[in-house]
Amino acid sequence: MSARENIFRKLRAATTAPLPSPDAAIAAHYASLPRTAQADLARVQLAKDFAEKITAWHAEVHIVPRSTWVDKLKEVVAAKGIASLLYAPATTHGKALAAAGVAGLKPYDQPIDGWKRELFENVDAAITGTRGAIAETGTMIVWPDADEPRLMSLVPPIHIALVDADTVVPTLYDAITQQKWSAGLPTNALLITGPSKTADIQQTLAYGAHGPKELIVLLLTGEDAQ
């Protein structure tokens, strides 16, 4: 008999009393939290909470109007001395970047297999979009895809992320249910909360363990929310 058959035979031999699904209890729990209960919590407040929380997680946040984020990005690129900025040319924000003629742009347009070393050694920063953000924990939701691949938010020492203030939801539970994650997950979905870190040496916090050392968030808002 195969290992699989043996394992299932043993599991099935045990008596288990069925339990009710926890679905309703989970929904009720999140509905009871003050944050979710205020469903009409102003978007502006959620975005503000998100910005505060992710700042506490050691991210650098810039709140900018949607129409001028590229200018802010140019400032950041200059301030950080970024010579090579990886971007996703097929995305809307990628197109905007190319059109604005940001210096040092490097497109992620080839499978990684041919240029792994270059990505690891010669790229200073990458800019990606996000699918939303979570106010409770100061978390960004990133769904890499064919246009904007997984390694962009991982390998370069600086990760710059665009978060639209209108996409901030109260909790992870809201994100998963409202965006119907279970109906079609990508090969890789990520929650990112700050730059890479570790406390493995004597509980002393150090940033940039393996992933980005710096996380810069451009939080895009309407003109009036400034």
């Binding site: 997680w57 992620y108 347009d109 080839q110 499978p111 990684i112 409770e136 924990t137 100061g138 978390t139 895809d145 064919a146 691949p149 997984r150 390694l151 997950l185 990508p186 090969t187 890789n188 979905a189 990520l190 929650l191 990112i192 909360t193 700050g194 730059p195 890479s196 870190k197 406390a199 992933g211």
Partner: peptide
């Protein structure tokens, strides 16, 4: 575990690289 509200990464993997994807 460590008194953190959340970790830096929550990595949700639903399969290897698909045709057309550039990494993974």
């Amino acid at each position: 575990a460590t008194g953190q509200a959340i970790t830096t990464y929550f990595n949700v993997i639903t399969g290897p690289r698909k045709p057309g994807e550039k990494d993974g």
